[in-house]
């Protein structure tokens, strides 16, 4: 673990741990819902990448904005969402954050500055940059973080908006979650040259960081967010991470593109939660017992939310043509 910032107190650290554990627990439950055929459709699990969303979002204020991806449950939790509304959304229920209209791929707690999860790879890059444009235009000090995967770096839109963001010094941070794969293809096969170099070509300061180290991610983000607020943006981060599940929950037989050995190595040796937990205990910030009880609370919370969502109402059919146009 990287050295922690002095300004952090015990509660900040526990909050980071709690948020990572909440994401993992949310995903375990979502996967269970899929496996037991209780969840409509497919979903993309964020398990393994928790330190990225949490390290970044813990450096943001509620009013800062993020844009999320098809693998968006982690961003949603990290930006402050509650389990109940999230599970309701996953099951297409009326009380979901999007009233059941979005589902897994569009899940977002809009009231916490989440501008939406996007099912179009790279589709949110314009939105994030536009959000930063608003901040500058209206003289607010909000920062926007654009989450996207390594695969999304192939989209042309990214280069168009990075160019403008750099020209206009917009307060946006492009956060590339490099989990080594773009669907069923290794990143090396779809990305020529250097990913950081692409941002640097526009004069954008770019950093690579260990995405399994929540403190490193958080420390870097805090610095960049501060500088964004002072008008020094945009910035680019490449967060090296790993997804534990298949591309989506249905991607079970995946040895043709990714070995079990590789998966085991990441899970056993680089797990962001296990690593942070050992650090918390070693530093005397929390005891094993305290963390166990925290985990138990989170699990109970998740079970209750799942139960609630399973029983919750579907939207009334009259909602089908509601919200096509704003009033």
């Amino acid at each position: 673990m990287s050295a922690a910032k002095k300004t952090h107190n015990t509660e900040d650290f526990l909050q980071m741990y709690r948020q990572m554990a909440r994401i993992r627990t949310f995903e375990d439950n979502a996967n269970q819902l899929y496996l037991s055929a209780k969840m409509p459709g497919l979903t993309h699990m964020y398990s393994g990448e928790e330190a990225v969303a949490v390290g970044i979002c813990e450096a943001l204020r509620m009013t800062d904005k993020i844009t999320s991806t098809h693998r968006g449950h982690g961003h949603c939790v990290a930006k402050g969402a509650d389990f109940k509304e999230m599970f309701c959304e996953l099951l297409g229920k009326e009380e979901g954050y999007c009233r059941g209209k979005g589902g897994s791929m569009h899940i977002a707690d809009q009231s916490n500055g989440n501008l939406g999860a996007n099912a179009i790879v790279g589709g949110s890059m314009g939105i994030a940059t536009g959000s930063a444009f608003t901040a500058k235009m209206l003289g607010k000090d909000d920062v926007t973080v654009c989450f996207f995967g390594d695969g999304a770096t192939a989209q042309g839109l990214m280069y168009e908006v990075m160019n403008m963001a750099a020209l206009w010094s917009l307060p946006v941070i492009y956060a590339c979650e490099n989990n080594g794969y773009s669907e069923y293809t290794r990143t090396e096969e779809i990305a020529a040259g250097s990913i950081l170099g692409r941002a640097q070509a526009f004069g954008i300061e770019a950093h690579q960081v260990d995405g399994q180290d929540v403190l490193a991610v958080n420390a870097l983000t805090e610095k960049l967010v501060d500088r964004c607020r002072k008008g020094e943006g945009p910035f680019f981060m490449e967060l090296m991470t790993y997804r534990y599940h298949g591309h989506h929950v249905g991607d079970i037989n995946r040895e043709y593109y990714r070995s079990k050995q590789e998966e085991r190595d990441w899970k056993e040796n680089r797990d962001p939660i296990i690593r942070f937990r050992s650090w918390l205990v070693a530093e005397g910030i929390a005891t094993e017992a305290e963390l166990d009880s925290l985990n138990a609370d989170i699990r109970a919370d998740a079970s209750a939310a799942v139960e609630y969502a399973l029983q919750a109402k579907y939207p009334d059919v009259s909602e089908v043509d509601m919200h096509v146009y704003a009033a």
Partner: peptide
Amino acid sequence: AMDVPVPFSPALEDIT
């Protein structure tokens, strides 16, 4: 199909 974006919820999607 109904003139609405396709909704996720099965309760809504099926009637579109």
